[in-house]
Design a protein around this nucleic acid. Structure first.
Length: 294
DNA sequence: AATGCTATCAACCGCAGCTAA
DNA sequence: TTTAGCTGCGGTTGATAGCAT
C-alpha cells in the first residue's frame, strides 16, 4: 500500500557509501541488530534512507558474504535453480548462503545470460530450441507462485542432486567455511568492508555463538517474511569470524518461507532426504541437465 | 599515451506484500 | 474492513575499472 517517503525526502544522500558511513551503520547494527531500518537514519544521523541502509548491509556489509568469482559449482546451481524458480533471486540466493541476491542477479545478467545466448547461437538444438530455452527461463505468472512454492523444496533438492552429481570432484556441498578460506580474487572497497567486519569481532561473544540479542527493535522480526534478525544474523557473523561455523542466510528475511536458508543440518537433510527417498513425492518438474550449458 | 568500448557491480527505483492500528 | 507504515524483492541504471585500438 503506502510507500515510504524516505527516498523522496530532500537531504537524503545517494550514491556510493563512504567508509565512515559504513562504520556508522555497522556500529548501529552492532548495537541494535539488523532490522528496524526505518530507525537507522534517525538514530544514527546517517543521511540515507532506510532502504539504502538495508541494502548496504544486506549486499555488502553483512558478515559472511563471499566475494569474488563464482565457482563452477555455484554457476551450475544458479543455472539450474533459475530454470526451476525463474528470476526469484532471493529464493535462489537462499541456496547459496554466501551470495547475495544482488550478486546472483548481476552474475546472471552479466555472465550466465550471455553464456546461454552464446551457446544457443552456437546451435545447440538450433535457434528454435535456443529461443525455447531462453523463454523457459521467464518467470512464471504470479498465479502459479503459490503452487510452485510448494514444489520448490522438492525441485531444489533434485536440482542440488543433479548439480552436485555433475562435479563429484569438487566439494559436493557448498561449504561456507571452505569458501571463506579462499582469498577474494578482487580487492575493492570490499577490503574495507572486511575490515569493518572485523570490527564485529567485539560483537561476537563466546558461549552464545557470538549472538547479540538484536531483534527486539525489529518490528518485522516476527513477520511472515521472517526477519529472523537475531539468530541468523548472528550465524552469518559466526561464519565470517569463526570460519568454522556453517551458517545460513536469513538475517533480514530475504529467504522466502518455502525456500529457507540452509544450515549444515539443512543441507544434510536436503541431500540425505532427497537421496534417501529417491524423489518420493517429487513433483514432476522436468529437470534439464545443466551440464549441457557448459 | 589517448581514446573509445565493454564488462562489472553497487546502488536506486518502484511495486508487492505483510502487519498493525 | 480499510488504511498507513514498513520491509523485501526484482528490474534497471550509472559509475568506473579494464581492455582494445
Amino acid at each position: 500500500m503506502g510507500r515510504p517517503p524516505c527516498c523522496d525526502q530532500a537531504g537524503v544522500k545517494k550514491g556510493p557509501w563512504t567508509p565512515e558511513e559504513d562504520l556508522v551503520l555497522v556500529s548501529y547494527i552492532q548495537d541494535h541488530g539488523p532490522g528496524n531500518w526505518r530507525a537507522v537514519p534517525t538514530t544514527t544521523g546517517l543521511m540515507r534512507c532506510s532502504k539504502s541502509c538495508r541494502l548496504r548491509w544486506t549486499n555488502y556489509l553483512r558478515p559472511g558474504i563471499k566475494r569474488g568469482n563464482f565457482t563452477d559449482q555455484e554457476e551450475k546451481l544458479i543455472v539450474h535453480l533459475q530454470a526451476l524458480l525463474g528470476n526469484r533471486w532471493a529464493a535462489i540466493a537462499s541456496y547459496l548462503p554466501e551470495r547475495t541476491d544482488n550478486d546472483i542477479k548481476n552474475y546472471w545478467n552479466t555472465h550466465l545470460k550471455r553464456k546461454l545466448k552464446k551457446m544457443a547461437a552456437a546451435g545447440e538444438g538450433g535457434p528454435d530450441a535456443a529461443a525455447a530455452e531462453l523463454k523457459s527461463r521467464e518467470p512464471a505468472p504470479k498465479g502459479q507462485w503459490e503452487r510452485r512454492l510448494q514444489t520448490d523444496i522438492h525441485t531444489a533438492r533434485q536440482a542440488l542432486r543433479d548439480a552436485l552429481s555433475m562435479d563429484a570432484s569438487t566439494p559436493t556441498v557448498p561449504q561456507p567455511s571452505a569458501a571463506l578460506a579462499a582469498p577474494p580474487l578482487k580487492a575493492t572497497y570490499a577490503s574495507s568492508a572486511d575490515n569493518i567486519a572485523r570490527l564485529l569481532e567485539g560483537w561476537m561473544r563466546p558461549g552464545d555463538g557470538g549472538c547479540k540479542a538484536s531483534s527486539s527493535g525489529s518490528p518485522s522480526a516476527g513477520s511472515v517474511s521472517g526477519d529472523g534478525a537475531s539468530a541468523s544474523h548472528c550465524g552469518m557473523a559466526a561464519a565470517t569470524l569463526n570460519g568454522s561455523t556453517v551458517t545460513s542466510r536469513t538475517e533480514d528475511g530475504r529467504a522466502p518461507a518455502a525456500t529457507p536458508a540452509l544450515s549444515t543440518l539443512d543441507w544434510n537433510w536436503l541431500l540425505d532426504d532427497g537421496m534417501g527417498h529417491g524423489g518420493v513425492g517429487l513433483v514432476d518438474v522436468p529437470l534439464r541437465d545443466p551440464s549441457h550449458f557448459f
